[in-house]
Design a protein around this nucleic acid. Structure first.
Lengths: 316, 316
DNA sequence: TCATGTTCTGGGCATATGCTCAAACACCGA
DNA sequence: TCGGTGTTTGAGCATATGCCCAGAACATGA
C-alpha cells in the first residue's frame, strides 16, 4: 500500500467519493469528513469522478414525444432502427444527449447471441457513444473499423473509435491497417493490396451492423476542423455540391458520392448505398440536418440515432 | 395529446427534467425556464425522476480496497463469485450500496449466450438489485422463483422478486405456484403434488445460477418483521441455535439446517449445501455477518455480493 | 351549489455547491 | 542550494438546491 501509483490511488479516491455522492446521496461535507479530507478536496474528487467518466447516468424512460418522432422517421425514410434522445435544450451539447442512447443501441447488438460483425466509422458522436458503453464481453462478435488507423505521424489514429471501444468491449477487434489518408494514390494502393488490409476490408463489407458518424460539409466541416482537408479543398468540394460525409467519403444533397481530391487517397472503406444490413448514422445538431437528410435519402444509412431537435428538423 | 394519461405525462416531464439535469448538466433554473415551469416544479420533477427510479447511476471503477477484499473472501471461503461494493459510510444504507453491483452481476449471467436457468430467492437486498437492473432481453434463459408466490390473502406475494424482475428482463419466468407458507403440512403437500409446482421445483433444483438473500435471526429477523413468524416462534428458533435463513429455511451457526415450526409448511425450495452451480448470497450490513458466515461455512452459498464493511467483518 | 378534504404551487430561507484566487508545495535543472 | 515552473490546496463568495409553509386549485360528496 505504501508505494502505489499516485494516479491510480487518486482515481480510487475519486471513485469512492463519487460513489458516496451519487449512489449514497451524501453531501460533499459528509464525504469530506468520512474520508478525512477538506470539503474542497471532496468536491474536486466528486467532480473528477464525473469528468473521468467513472460515473455513468442513464435514463430509464422513453419520453412520448421521442417515440412519436421515432415512428415518424421510420415511416418517412424507411429505416430499420431509430433512436431519438430528448434534446438537452438550448445550451446543451447534442453529442452528450445521444451518447448514452447510441451506446445502449450498440450494446443491444453486442448482446446478441449469434456471432456478428460490427463495423465502426468515425466521428465525435460515435466516439462519445463508445465512451458511454458499459463493459461487456462479446467474444462471439468481431468489431471492425471502417477507417484507417494510421495517423499522418505513424501513430495509431486518434480518430479510430475502435481503440476506445476495445477498452470496454471484450471482443476480437480489427483496426484497418492503412493510413487515414495516404500521401498519394499509389501509396494507398500499396497499402490496400496488403493482405491484412484486405481481410479488414472484406470484414467491413460483410458487416452485419454498421455504426457511423455523419459529417456536415459547411464551413465548420469536421474534415476541415480535424485537418483532413484545407480550406481551399473544402471550398472546391462545396462547389461540387458536397453536402455530407461518412468516413471521409463525400456525398451531395441527393446522397450520391462525388469525386473529390480525397477520393483516391482515403484509406477508409466506402459504404455503398442500399446495404441490406443495418447501417446506423449517429449524429445530432441542426448543422448536420442537411447531411443527414442526404445520407438518408440516398440510402447510405438505413438507421439513425439522433436527438429530438434534429429529428424534428429532419421531418420538416 | 390533449387527453393523455396525466400520470404518464407527469413521468414524461420528470424524465425530461431528469435528463436535462443529470445528462445535460443544466441547473434547475435553466430547466425551469426551458420547460416553462417554476423552479420549484423543476426541482420536484428532477427529484421525482430519481425517486421513481428513472435515473440510474453506475460507477465504472473498481476500488482497490474492494478488490483486495474480494480476493480475500474468495480464498477464505472458496467462493466462485464475489463482489464487494464500496461502503457508503456511516449513515448509508448498505442495501443501496450493493443493489447496483448485484444487478450488474445478474445482468452478466443473463447476457450469457448459452441458455441457463436462474433461480431467485427473496430478501430486500435482492429486490433492490432487481430494481436496479437495466432492461435486457434474454429469451434464451429461464428465471425461476425459489419461494411461493401466493400470499396469505391469495394474491401474488409481495416478496416474490421474480415479479419485479419480469418488468425489466424479457425472459420466460416461472413463479412458484404454492403459498409462501401453507396453513398446514397437509395443505403444502397438496400444493406440492400439483404438476405446475413440480415443474418449478425441478427447475429450481437444476438452476445454473441462484441468487438469494440471507436473513439474520436476531430479534430484528426479516422473518419476524415481515410477519412470517411470531415473536415466540422466533425465540424458540433462537433457542435451537438459529443463526440465519435463506428462503425461509433456517440454519445454525455451522450452516446446518434445523427443524423449525415452519419446516413442514414452507412453500419454498430448500437450497442443499455444496451445490456445484453458483449460489450467490446478496446481503450487507453488520447485523447479517453471523448469518452470512454460517451460510458460507456450511457451503449453502458459494458466492457473495456484499459491501466493504460487511466483507471486512466476515474476514475477522 | 357549497363545504371539505386533498393535492399542488410558489415564496422564502438555510444550506450545499462550484468557482476563483492567492498561498503553499513539490519537482527539476543549474 | 537556489530559483523557476507547474500543480495542488484551502479560504471566501456568488449561486444553486432542498425543504418548509401558507395559500390556491382541484376533486369529492352531500
Amino acid at each position: 500500500m505504501s508505494r502505489s501509483d499516485p494516479e491510480a490511488s487518486l482515481q480510487d479516491e475519486a471513485a469512492r467519493a463519487g460513489w458516496m455522492y451519487y449512489v449514497g446521496g451524501k453531501t460533499q461535507d459528509q464525504i469530506a469528513t468520512e474520508l478525512g479530507v477538506s470539503r474542497q478536496r471532496a468536491q474536486r474528487l466528486v467532480s473528477r469522478a464525473m469528468t473521468d467518466g467513472l460515473v455513468h447516468v442513464r435514463l430509464e424512460h422513453k419520453i412520448a414525444a421521442c417515440l412519436v418522432l421515432e415512428a415518424e422517421l421510420t415511416r418517412r425514410f424507411g429505416l430499420c432502427e431509430v433512436r431519438v434522445a430528448p434534446s438537452l435544450g438550448d445550451g446543451g451539447d447534442p453529442t452528450r444527449a445521444i451518447a448514452g442512447v447510441g451506446a445502449g443501441l450498440m450494446e443491444k447488438y453486442l448482446r446478441r447471441t449469434e456471432p456478428l460483425i460490427m463495423a465502426l466509422g468515425t466521428g465525435r458522436a460515435l466516439r462519445a457513444c463508445a465512451d458511454e458503453m458499459l463493459p461487456i464481453t462479446a467474444e462471439q462478435h468481431r468489431i471492425v473499423s471502417l477507417i484507417g488507423n494510421i495517423a499522418p505521424d505513424g501513430s495509431a489514429s486518434f480518430y479510430d473509435v475502435i481503440i476506445r471501444i476495445s477498452d470496454r468491449v471484450r471482443a476480437p477487434h480489427f483496426p484497418m491497417p492503412v493510413p487515414v489518408i495516404s500521401d498519394t494514390a499509389a501509396e494507398r494502393a500499396m497499402f490496400q493490396r496488403l493482405r491484412p488490409a484486405q481481410i479488414v476490408f472484406d470484414l467491413a463489407k460483410a458487416a452485419d451492423v454498421t455504426f457511423v458518424g455523419v459529417g456536415q460539409m459547411g464551413d465548420d466541416a469536421p474534415l476541415l476542423l480535424d485537418g483532413f482537408v484545407s480550406a481551399p479543398d473544402l471550398a472546391e468540394m462545396q462547389a461540387l455540391g458536397a453536402t455530407g460525409e461518412i468516413a471521409g467519403w463525400v456525398f451531395d444533397a441527393q446522397g450520391k458520392y462525388i469525386e473529390t481530391c480525397l477520393s483516391d487517397r482515403l484509406g477508409s472503406a466506402r459504404l455503398e448505398p442500399n446495404r441490406p444490413a443495418p447501417v446506423i448514422g449517429i449524429a445530432a445538431g441542426l448543422r448536420k440536418v442537411r447531411a443527414l437528410k442526404a445520407a438518408l435519402e440516398g440510402h447510405i444509412i438505413n438507421g439513425l440515432v439522433t436527438d429530438e431537435a434534429t429529428a424534428q428538423a429532419l421531418l420538416i
